[in-house]
Amino acid sequence: HNLTITQGKLFFHYNPKLCLSEIHKMEEVSGTKGRQERNDIALKTNGDQASCENELLKFSYIRTSFDKILLRWEPYWPPDFRDLLGFMLFYKEAPYQNVTEFDGQDACGSNSWTVVDIDPPLRSNDPKSQNHPGWLMRGLKPWTQYAIFVKTLVTFSDERRTYGAKSDIIYVQTDATNPSVPLDPISVSNSSSQIILKWKPPSDPNGNITHYLVFWERQAEDSELFELDYCLKGLKLPSRTWSPPFESEDSQKHNQSEYEDSAGECCSCPKTDSQILKELEESSFRKTFEDYLHNVVFVPRKTSSGTGAEDPRPSRKRRSLGDVGNVTVAVPTVAAFPNTSSTSVPTSPEEHRPFEKVVNKESLVISGLRHFTGYRIELQACNQDTPEERCSVAAYVSARTMPEAKADDIVGPVTHEIFENNVVHLMWQEPKEPNGLIVLYEVSYRRYGDEELHLCVSRKHFALERGCRLRGLSPGNYSVRIRATSLAGNGSWTEPTYFYVTDYLDVPSNIA
């Protein structure tokens, strides 16, 4: 807008934040220059609390790290170098490059900038070799853009010569660093050979998330399962459950009422301010606690030095998902009996873990797994792929695949051998790939016309006998059925096997 004052003059007093240069501009645009008398524009009460600059400061050096910015700028000295009290560095987070010096300023003089007072450097006698002032900004957020400017702080001049310097606002972004852990990993099994893994992005990506790394490792069953005799009275049979499938998407929606109208769909109840505040506090606490764990609990591995020492970490090797089922080394339970199943799973520490690289999504279907087997899954978020990966501390989750139908069934015939004193040795093959492992066998036998009897055969007993022995049988026709019990439950009964026990007292003698 054009402003013209045809008559009258300007009068400025007691404006401590208004620089004289701005008042002189007002004289020019209003056409009143030359009308004012000496005392109409006070030299001592206008701009006496402001830094009124008329020179431009330029930054000469900028260096960044993930949490620091090192700045240096060209030296500046007023005509009387004693008038320079120091520099004021202003900075704040700036997602967009549209910041002005006066953003967030209120009537009390406060604003949204963080201000650092910096002492002037030592003055050199040689004007050509003056030290460049600077400042190291610490405690910054990774991968965050900051708006920065600097200006001088000078003393009051009796001659009211307006001098000083100020830089333009520059924008500097800190470097990326390792992201925080992925949030809320959930693993479920939808079949006997697959596990579905879902997660949420890290709360602090500290860069642009480029991919996720998912490692999985087959877990050995508890050692007590191999040692305890679950045929003993009072000892509860062990059981394991597989990871249940995901709930429906509708039930997972946030901010939804727990109660549904019987007449149909209901609208979600909005969260109160107290609920939102509580969630923010919980989120802040979780982030602080995660940072504490990362800094205190997890110790970084030592990389190899120039002395030739090897990095103890196993090298990563990509495998196809079809090879995942046989990740671990199978060892027989008892070496003397080769027909026992290889369900003991000690994992070799030198073995390469299978892994998958996930790009542009937060889910993965891990296939080719062994049925009813526990897996430990390790999830890392990465925001750099080359020249070397920059990934987060791992988040861990466990899951067990679903049982395989008929995996616990005894394959092959049940054979028998009759000894003296009416002892019958029953023999059968253990299931080759049971659900988890076989903890015991149930032997059901009966003599024709009598009630059915049951015998429990422990895992250890089966390994020693290759089956079991029935003792003290009365003469007669017998039928026997056997079924295995694994961590997933009972298998199917075998087809009945028949044998006849004679009275050993009636056996004919070869003595003449």
Rank of each mutant, 00 (worst) to 15 (best):
S203G: 11
N206G: 08
G207D: 05
N208S: 08
N208A: 08
I209V: 12
T210L: 12
T210Y: 07
Y212R: 00
Y212V: 11
Y212K: 00
Y212F: 15
F215V: 12
W216Q: 05
E217R: 11
E217D: 10
R218A: 06
R218K: 07
Q219L: 13
A220L: 11
E221A: 01
D222L: 12
S223C: 14
E224L: 05
F226C: 08
E227W: 09
E227K: 08
Y230P: 07
Y230M: 05
Y230S: 08
C231K: 02
L232F: 12
L232G: 11
G234T: 09
G234R: 11
L235R: 09
L237Q: 04
L237D: 10
S239V: 04
R240I: 07
S243L: 10
P244R: 09
P245V: 07
F246H: 13
F246Y: 12
E247I: 05
E247P: 12
S248H: 06
S248T: 07
E249S: 11
E249R: 07
S251T: 06
S251Y: 05
Q252R: 08
Q252W: 12
H254K: 13
Q256F: 12
S257V: 09
Y259Q: 11
Y259H: 05
D261L: 09
A263L: 11
A263T: 06
A263V: 12
A263D: 08
G264M: 08
E265L: 08
E265V: 06
C266V: 08
C266G: 15
C267Q: 10
S268V: 12
C269P: 10
P270W: 08
K271P: 05
K271C: 13
T272N: 10
D273P: 15
D273T: 04
Q275W: 10
Q275I: 11
Q275M: 09
Q275F: 09
L277H: 12
E281P: 05
E281F: 14
S283P: 08
S283F: 14
S284G: 12
S284D: 15
S284I: 01
F285M: 13
R286N: 03
R286F: 11
R286A: 13
R286Q: 07
R286C: 10
K287P: 12
T288A: 02
T288V: 13
T288E: 13
F289W: 13
E290A: 14
E290G: 15
D291H: 10
D291L: 08
D291C: 09
Y292C: 02
H294N: 06
N295P: 15
V297D: 11
V297A: 08
V297W: 08
F298G: 05
F298S: 07
P300S: 08
R301H: 06
S304K: 15
S305P: 12
S305D: 09
G306E: 11
G308M: 14
G308C: 14
E310I: 06
D311K: 15
P312A: 15
P312S: 12
R313M: 02
R313W: 09
R313S: 09
P314Y: 15
P314F: 08
S315H: 11
S315K: 11
R316E: 09
R316Q: 04
R319K: 12
R319N: 09
S320K: 12
L321T: 12
G322N: 04
G322L: 11
G322S: 09
D323Y: 13
V324N: 14
G325R: 04
N326P: 10
V327I: 05
V329G: 14
P332E: 14
P332G: 10
P332S: 11
P332I: 07
A335L: 12
A336Q: 05
A336G: 04
F337D: 07
F337W: 08
P338K: 06
T340G: 06
S341T: 07
S342F: 09
T343G: 11
T343I: 08
T343L: 06
T347Q: 08
T347K: 07
E351Y: 15
R353N: 13
R353L: 13
R353E: 11
P354K: 05
E356Q: 07
K357N: 10
K357W: 02
K357F: 14
V358S: 04
N360S: 09
K361F: 12
K361S: 10
K361Q: 07
E362K: 07
E362N: 07
S363F: 13
S363L: 07
L364R: 09
V365H: 02
I366Y: 01
S367W: 12
S367A: 15
S367I: 08
S367F: 05
G368K: 04
G368P: 08
L369D: 00
R370T: 00
R370Q: 12
R370L: 15
R370E: 15
H371E: 04
H371S: 13
T373I: 04
G374I: 09
E378H: 13
E378W: 09
L379A: 05
Q380T: 15
A381D: 01
A381Y: 03
A381T: 11
A381W: 02
N383W: 07
D385E: 13
D385T: 03
D385S: 03
T386V: 03
E388A: 07
E389I: 08
E389N: 13
E389A: 07
E389V: 09
E389F: 13
C391R: 01
V393L: 05
V393G: 03
A394L: 09
A395L: 11
Y396R: 08
V397S: 10
S398W: 02
A399F: 07
M402V: 13
P403G: 03
E404L: 05
E404A: 04
E404G: 11
A405H: 13
K406S: 10
K406D: 09
A407R: 11
A407M: 03
D409Q: 09
I410T: 03
G412I: 03
G412S: 13
V414H: 01
T415A: 13
H416F: 06
H416Y: 14
I418N: 10
I418A: 08
I418R: 05
I418P: 08
F419S: 09
V423D: 15
V424S: 01
H425M: 05
H425Y: 13
H425F: 15
L426D: 01
M427C: 02
Q429F: 13
E430R: 06
P431F: 02
P431W: 00
K432G: 04
E433S: 13
P434W: 01
N435L: 00
G436L: 11
L437M: 09
I438S: 03
I438G: 01
V439C: 05
V443L: 08
V443I: 10
V443K: 00
S444T: 11
R446A: 11
G449W: 02
D450T: 10
E451Q: 14
L453F: 05
L453T: 08
H454T: 09
L455A: 12
L455G: 09
L455S: 10
C456V: 02
V457L: 14
V457A: 03
V457P: 00
S458A: 09
R459G: 09
K460Q: 07
H461D: 15
F462W: 13
E465T: 11
E465S: 10
G467N: 02
G467M: 03
R469L: 09
R469Y: 09
R469E: 10
R469A: 03
L470G: 00
L470V: 14
L473K: 01
L473N: 02
S474V: 12
P475W: 05
G476Y: 00
G476E: 01
S479F: 03
V480H: 00
V480K: 00
V480M: 07
I482K: 01
I482M: 02
R483F: 01
R483P: 01
R483Y: 02
A484V: 04
S486I: 00
S486G: 13
G489R: 10
G489D: 03
T494Y: 02
P496K: 06
Y498R: 12
Y498A: 13
Y498T: 07
V501Y: 07
V501H: 04
T502H: 04
D503N: 15
D503L: 06
D503G: 05
Y504D: 13
L505Q: 07
V507M: 14
S509N: 12
I511F: 15
